[in-house]
């Protein structure tokens, strides 16, 4: 099954729409609540990243009985040093974003902790592609 959601850069009010929708879908598919939680937390972080840093993005979700695969493609500034960005507490968020309670530097580490596979490719000045997989091993 495939689903697609659009993420608007800069709109914090709508951040979390894709993760809420996906949560509803996974509950209906009787996916283990613990897996649902991990998926939703990781996707929410990724969504907020697009909202906070990029101009626009697309979330593509593929669900099978074996796994849930999420691919987030954004148009944005890109990440110059991915290893640095993966460190807990590291953040390039603007003071404006921090004032809203985001930008604590937990985004990528949280995504890594909650997903089974995390791949990030990025091109500075163009955008970032985040791919996350969650295995259902039923």
């Amino acid at each position: 099954m495939e689903f697609e959601f659009i993420v608007e850069g800069g709109n914090f009010i709508k951040a979390g729409t894709a993760s809420s929708q996906l949560k509803k879908i996974l509950k209906q598919l009787n996916v283990d609540p613990k897996v649902v939680k991990r998926v939703v937390v990781a996707l929410y972080e990724a969504e907020v990243n697009i909202v906070a840093h990029a101009y626009s993005g697309v979330v593509q979700i593929t669900i099978s009985t074996e796994s849930i695969n999420i691919r987030l493609v954004d148009e944005g500034p890109g990440i110059p040093d991915i290893n640095l960005a993966m460190q807990t507490g590291y953040s390039t968020a603007s003071s404006e974003v921090r004032e809203m309670g985001f930008g604590a530097g937990m985004g990528l580490p949280n995504m890594k902790n909650n997903s089974d596979v995390l791949n990030i490719t990025s091109e500075v000045g163009k955008g970032t592609i985040v791919e996350m997989s969650f295995f259902l091993n039923q």
Binding site: M1, I25, K27, Q28, N30, T65
Partner: peptide
């Protein structure tokens, strides 16, 4: 214990068919 009322079917592949 959880007792989800959201699920369309106990079996995930059946639930996916039903969701379609």
């Amino acid at each position: 214990a959880p007792r989800s009322m959201m699920k369309l079917d106990e079996n995930m592949s059946e639930a996916m068919k039903k969701m379609d």
